[in-house]
Structure formats: C-alpha cells, structure tokens
C-alpha cells in the first residue's frame, strides 16, 4: 500500500509538472500579451515604452525561461494576480472551486442515486419494454447537447412556468438559503441529466455481468429472495467497476461543468476559465486550468485506489508494478 501510494503520487506530480508547462506554453500562444492589455488601457504608451516594459517583465525571454520564472515563484507560493479582478488569483479561484464542487458533487451524487435503481431494474428485467425505454433514455442523455438541454430547461421552467430563476447565484437583496437553492435547481438538473445516462448503462452492464456468475446461482439455490440476491450479493460486486467509472469521469464532469456554468451564469471554475480565456486574464486561466487538471489527476488516483480497496482479488503490489 505504501509503495503504491508513493509511486502513484510521484507519477502524479510529474504529470502535473509536465501539464503546467504545456498549459503555460499554450497560454503564451493566446492572442495578445499583458503589455498589449496595458497599451489598450493607456494611449500614452509608446512602442518604445512597450518594448522596455516587455524587457522589464521578462516577456522577451524564451518560453522555457519564462516558464522557469513562473514555476519558481509558483513553488514559492506566489501564483500571481488576476488582471480582471485585481486580486491574487487564489482569492478569485478558491470560491469558484467551492461553487463547482457543490454543483458537480450534488449532480454526481444525484446521478448515482438515480442510476443504481434504474440500472439494476433494467439489468434484472432484460429485453422488456422498460429495459428498452431505459436504454433509449440513456442514449438520449449521452447524445443531448448540454447547452441546448440547459436552454430547453430555461425555456420551460424559467420562461414559461417561471418556477426557477434562469441563471445567477442568488437574487440581489435576498440571498437566503432557499433563494440560493432555487438558483441551483436548473444547473444541477442539467448536469445530472447529461451524466445519469452514462452511469445507468454502466450499472446495467455491471449487474448483468455479475448476475450470470456462479455465486448468484448459489445464493438463489440456498433460497434467498430476489431482493436479497440482487441488492446484497450482486450489487456489492457490480458497484466496483461503477465506482471506478464515476471516479475516472469526475475530472471531466468537473471541467465539463463549464458549459452548464456558462449557461446559467453560475460562478464556478469552468465559467472562470472560459471568461479569463476570452478576457485575456492569462494568470487566472493558467492557475484555474492547473487546478482542473489536478482534479482530473485526483479522480484517476481515487479510481485506482478505490478499485484496489474494493476488490480483494487485486493487490496494491500488482497495480504498482
């Protein structure tokens, strides 16, 4: 176990370091640079001034040196300032990460809670009408453009019915818990609906795989009820691959929440990344992307660890080799 953790953490750090360089290089290729932004804000700057400023801030150095400087100060704990928000990047990012974790966390939990009973029912009643209907719904969930689903939910529940607000985090002047929750309903619903289909298919496949096993026949032979066989014996094994799928997909749901957040003006990490890329807020985009990448890596790490922890047939030693 110890060896496994050390190896995986070292690998993770290396990947994160490589990713930080890749992100840095890509951000460097974005149109414009910080001095262009200064020129746009201050018409008195001459091109000679701009050149001098570029030299002063080291923007004329080769990319590797610039990255070295950035990495050195980042490791010293200085992640820089946000150009748009005029505060340290971490002060902008921290509440956004929390908001996205709340949004993604509640959607994933809701999706899992829906996928398990639906998937189990479909798997234990294969090729019935209900199973076919579930299958159709799953394909619909996988295939629907998330931004369009958000749009349809807004049209139906905000414009026509007026049950929930169309976007934002809270009503100015209110901001109580009930108000905040009503702003969460449509974003959470969107993210849940686009996730639940995929989860359900995995649950169904995993339960079908298990239900053919000999131990299930044994459990039936000793007279256990269908409910006991399915919920106590089968599901426990079937959930192992499902847990892996959920953990592996967590990072991508986290970054994919960008669409939902943008549609509902939900102040999350994805919207921050999108806004800072469009608004030339290079520092914020860099750090926010790095944190999202970290989320993906954490998800992968959790998937590996949980897989070993849940399945006694696999040992940490064999996974780390």
């Amino acid at each position: 176990m110890g060896r496994f953790l050390v190896i995986r953490l070292t690998q993770g750090m290396l990947v994160l370091a490589a990713m930080s360089f890749l992100i840095y290089a890509l951000i460097g290729l974005m149109p414009g640079d910080p001095i262009d932004e200064m020129i746009a804000a201050n018409p008195h700057l001459t091109s000679a001034d701009a050149e001098a400023l570029r030299q002063r801030y080291g923007l004329d150095l080769p990319i590797t040196e610039r990255y070295g400087n950035w990495a050195a100060s980042a490791l010293a704990g200085d992640l820089g300032y946000s150009r748009v928000h005029s505060v340290p990047v971490l002060e902008v990012l921290a509440p956004r990460l929390v908001n996205t974790l709340i949004l993604v966390g509640s959607s994933v939990v809701l999706a899992v809670l829906l996928a398990i009973p639906i998937g189990v029912y479909a798997a234990t009643h294969p090729y019935t009408r209900t199973d076919t209907a579930v299958n159709l719904m799953c394909f619909a969930g996988i295939s629907i453009p998330p931004f369009w689903l958000a749009l349809m939910l807004i049209i139906l529940f905000a414009v026509i019915l007026g049950w929930f607000p169309a976007g934002g985090m809270l009503t100015v002047g209110d901001g109580g818990l009930a108000d905040r929750l009503s702003h969460m309903v449509l974003p959470v619903a969107t993210l849940t609906l686009v996730t639940v289909g995929d989860y359900t298919r995995h649950v169904r496949a995993a339960v079908q795989e298990q239900i053919r096993q000999d131990y299930v026949r044994t459990a039936r032979a000793k007279g256990l009820s269908q409910a006991a066989v399915v919920w106590r014996h089968t599901l426990r094994n079937a959930l192992i691959p499902v847990v892996t799928v959920v953990a592996l997909g967590f990072g991508n749901i986290f970054s994919g929440a960008l669409i939902t957040e943008t549609m509902f003006a939900y102040l999350g990490t994805g919207k921050l990344i999108y806004d800072s890329i469009l608004g030339n807020d290079f520092n914020t985009a860099m750090v926010a992307l790095l944190f999202v990448t970290l989320m993906v890596l954490v998800g992968n790490f959790l998937a590996d660890t949980l897989y070993v922890a849940l399945d006694p047939r696999i040992s940490f030693a064999s996974r780390s080799a």
């Binding site: 990713m19 974005m30 990072g251 970054s255 994805g270 990448t293 989320m295």
Partner: peptide, 11 residues
C-alpha cells in the same frame, strides 16, 4: 487524462 473541454477552448 486531460480536461478535454478547457483544452479544446484554449486550442
């Protein structure tokens, strides 16, 4: 392992 959507947006 890349976060797909943000990377597509940057690219």
């Amino acid at each position: 392992a890349l976060p797909l959507l943000p990377f597509l947006i940057i690219l």
